[in-house]
Amino acid sequence: MNEAALPRRIALIDAWRGVALVAMMTYHGAWDLAYLHLARIDPSGSMPWRIYAHVIAGTFLFLAGVSLVLATRSGFRLEPYLRRLGMIVAGAALVSVATYFAMPQGWVYFGILHQIALASVIALPFLRLPPLLTLVVAAIVAALPQVFRSEFFDVPALWWTGLAPLPHNSFDYVPVFPWTAAVLAGVAAGRLAVSHGLDRRLAAAWQPKAWPGRLLAVAGRHSLAVYLVHQPIIFGALFLVAQVLVPDAAVDGARADCVDRCVAARADEVGCHAYCRCMFEDMDKAGLMRPMLDNALTPADMDRVRGMALTCTAMTLPTPAPETTAPMERGETPPP
């Protein structure tokens, strides 16, 4: 088949990517609401939310593999490939720099753009290998971190591998193992689709006529730009809402969380309200409220907060708890 006979874009693939973008926006919006204490939800820790996030990330990576195949159907052209790769690398660098300065406690050192960029290089040999072999390698990549991790990889220069015993804090962490498996699965699926002429049939089967479909397809065609601009817009709008309409939302949300953890440990709601009121008053006087809300307490700060917790416990909840509770996180007030 000559190059002219090949469909340049497949609207259905673009729209699929557009749907993934909408899903990503809903997740990031929920995350922003939680981060700004505008809603008491936990997208980072709740299992349904985590599954939702993984499905979204997996969809983008799978489609990245499919798109790599579609872009090289007529042969590999170095210049367009390097141009696309350079744009993704630049976007990944921008995300890292922006989050390092704006949110240093969880800056993105290897997020989904970093993964797409590296996987786009890793996947190149598989564009000519049998799809079945590609799927076998994908299964190995997905399974490896489940059976092998090592302290050797627990250094900053190797965190991107995903093979350290525990992941290091980041708001978007998509390491090579296991996530490259999704890109390789996309490559295998794309190879099989092209070999059976499915790409031509899909291109002819559907073209968006109504505005929702057209909008999704346009967004999917410009997914990198949408990815880079959506979060500043959503976060900026919600930040203004938090500052103007509910300026005390962060403190109120943190205090409510404090009461919930206290009640779980003590089963004394009246005493827990007194305990959390004592803690927040003491932290405010000590200038620790803002660092606590920003998850920026230093080890010395955390020692001071623990001392306040002992004092407030003695004043409001003199009866000791039957069991010791889990250690506090940096963004939490310690349970009594």
Rank of each mutant, 00 (worst) to 15 (best):
P327C: 11
G220A: 10
G220V: 12
V19N: 02
A210C: 06
P299C: 11
Y100V: 01
R84C: 04
A326S: 13
F101L: 10
L310N: 09
A5W: 01
L198V: 12
W49K: 09
R149E: 09
H114Y: 01
I140W: 13
T99Q: 00
W179P: 02
E332L: 10
L70I: 11
L215S: 15
D284Y: 01
S67K: 02
A102S: 12
W211M: 14
R221M: 14
D154E: 03
R17Q: 14
Y52V: 08
A189H: 11
I112F: 00
P178F: 01
V89P: 08
A90C: 06
G307L: 01
P48H: 05
V176T: 11
A189I: 12
I88C: 01
A20R: 04
L192D: 00
L202E: 02
R84G: 09
L166C: 05
P322Y: 09
P299W: 01
P320T: 04
R200H: 13
L113R: 08
R8F: 01
A286C: 10
D42T: 11
A249M: 05
L310E: 15
G253A: 07
A225Q: 15
I56M: 06
A139K: 03
T99P: 03
L163K: 02
H114P: 05
V244D: 01
S96N: 02
M292P: 04
L184M: 09
I116K: 00
V176M: 10
F280C: 03
L184H: 01
L33W: 00
H54P: 00
T99W: 05
M289C: 02
T324V: 14
A90G: 05
V108M: 07
V183D: 08
R128A: 08
F280N: 01
A119I: 06
